[in-house]
Nucleic acid binder design. Structure first.
Lengths: 159, 159
DNA sequence: CCCTGAGATCACGCCGGCGTAACTACCGCG
DNA sequence: CGCGGTAGTTACGCCGGCGTGATCTCAGGG
């Protein structure tokens, strides 16, 4: 998926909103307050376009899931930092765990159990497999929609 | 601990604040908005006294821990409901898990792992052992303080 | 009875998060 | 160039949660 995407690709603001299931207002607010700033291209004024990477979108999806679980944006900030510190990890096989001011990407059930057993306070656990698969489905869907539009034009050109 | 407490005992508002680590304003707001209404005695106007049971205080401690983990009051409401539905459970050996609109008191690591594996979305996990032990320590402490005051009077009386 | 301490209540306002509508600017096409 | 579509920006206000200070009421003691 990522391999087929070049650096000039990425996702527009509205695309991201559709993929992640959030309002444009939310996305804008998060960009403005520095929670999640697009890594490919920031906004340069009215009429310009932000550009988000695959990893940006994944992070946003995690934020959304945390919000749905009643977790605050402040706390979600911690999750984003952890994910950005683990850019190369195999996320689909991991669970992101927030505990106090620590954050861990646990890669086995044993690791999770150990963390929970050693804990005081509440843990927020984000199984990443679901996040990744859901996002990939969404990306396939919008790429398919875009492809539907483009080939029609190309057919017209060759005829 | 609970056995030594009769129905007329319980904890005052300010005692609860000290035990749980919250402000009076918070406690008052939660009582007024119905998040956690004291079960022994509600407020009956200015100058009256609320009275909280041990289980009330335990629930409040869970709420506080959830807040500290960035979880919203709305979500904490779910935790309270689950705990109230399990009044007789051995809480010290369980973990409270919030998942979507479901809540479970898991009593084994295997159960926790199964829940996490079957999940979409984010889990809030509250290991109850820490909550219970911390609360019991706190209760011992305030009972000790109260006892310090009372015996001194009794010594004076026998001398 | 009066006073004091304790607990509850009231009132105002702050802050975060974001809904909603209107406005601005950019880009591409004819 | 003009126009329309699209995306970003601005502005106002709502709501939840609660800090802070002032006020009210109850209960007990002198």
């Amino acid at each position: 998926m990522q391999e087929s995407m070049t650096i000039t690709d990425g996702f527009s603001g509205p695309q991201v909103c559709a993929l992640v299931g959030i309002t444009y207002r939310q996305l804008d607010y998060w960009a403005r307050t520095g929670l999640l700033v697009p890594t490919i291209a920031v906004a340069k004024g009215s009429g310009s376009k932000r550009r988000y990477s695959y990893h940006d979108v994944l992070e946003l999806k995690v934020i959304k899931n945390l919000l749905d679980a009643g977790v605050s944006l402040q706390r979600a900030r911690q999750a984003v930092e952890c994910l950005r510190a683990n850019l190369g990890a195999d996320l689909a096989a991991a669970s992101l765990i927030l505990s106090g001011s620590d954050s861990v990407l646990a890669t086995s059930n044993g690791e999770i159990v150990d963390l929970l057993a050693g804990g005081q306070g509440v843990f927020n656990v984000v199984p990443m497999a679901g996040v990744v698969s859901e996002l990939e489905e969404g990306i396939v869907a919008i790429r398919t929609e875009s492809a539907d539009v483009v080939p029609a034009r190309r057919i017209a050109r060759s005829a």
